[in-house]
Amino acid sequence: MVAYKKLHSMLTSIGANVLAIEPQKHDRAVAIISHLPHMLAAVLMNLASSETNHTENVLMLAAGGFKDTTRIAAGSPRMWIDICLDNRDAILYSIDKMGDMLSALRNEIDSADRDAIADMLERAQKGRLNLPAALGKEIGHLYEIYIPVSDKPGVISDITLAVGQLGVNIEDIEILHATEHSGTLRLMIPEKDNADKVAKALIERGYEVDLRTTGG
């Protein structure tokens, strides 16, 4: 306990957020949010690569969404072999749970159950949009600002600089690719007044803006 307190004090002194968690719970948590995503990215990449042998130019059609989803598949195989074996039980648990969910989704698609598919997608959307809040950070009500942008140097810095000049914090930022040459920048802004100020400033700079509430 003394060693833990010393380590905790050192880490918090440099601004780290320290979470104390039991080893088994830690292993299961990182299996779900880190290890399983890497395995899924690798499987998806291998699936697309194998289909290229049967369907010409499959990977030529891959755009931002596929590249974002499979980015982590480029990690070191040697390191991930060790991770898989060291955290084997928790990863197997996560794979089984994911398999159950995929099986349920397959049945819903096979039976054309629109309501069930919509429910699954909407729950996932809500969870993803509220991810910063799920991290335990007190940031108030979040608002999303979507800005269509072209793929050229300086666009993102221009937008973030405009927000910074207002003294508003960006809680989360994400690029949603539409094509290789354009996409949508998504900003997460806390509180309605801040979101309104940001939207107004960006419109004045010539950007199209779509302001939404996350419902968080």
Rank of each mutant, 00 (worst) to 15 (best):
K126M: 15
N87K: 03
D115I: 03
I83M: 04
L142H: 03
G167M: 05
P190H: 03
M101G: 05
D68R: 12
A162E: 14
I173E: 11
Y146L: 15
K137E: 14
S111T: 08
E122T: 13
L135W: 10
Q165R: 15
R88Q: 09
G99T: 05
P77I: 02
I109Y: 14
D86A: 05
P132W: 04
H181V: 09
P153R: 03
G164I: 06
I83S: 01
I95T: 05
A178C: 01
E122N: 12
D110V: 06
I91Q: 05
L61A: 14
R186Y: 04
A116V: 05
S76N: 15
I159H: 05
A134C: 08
P132L: 07
Y93T: 14
E180I: 13
H141K: 10
T69D: 03
G140V: 10
N130L: 09
R186G: 00
D193M: 05
D89N: 08
A116Y: 01
D172L: 13
E138T: 06
D113N: 15
P148W: 11
T70W: 04
L176I: 13
P153V: 03
N87E: 07
E174V: 09
N87R: 07
L59Y: 03
L102Q: 06
H177S: 10
I95G: 00
G167C: 01
A63F: 11
D96C: 03
M79D: 02
A104L: 10
M120Y: 08
S111G: 01
N169E: 08
G75C: 04
E122V: 10
G167S: 06
L129K: 05
G140M: 09
K126N: 14
G99F: 09
I147R: 12
D100H: 07
D96M: 01
P148A: 14
V155L: 12
A63D: 13
A90P: 02
T70P: 07
C84G: 11
S76E: 13
T179F: 09
L59F: 08
E144P: 09
A118H: 07
P148H: 12
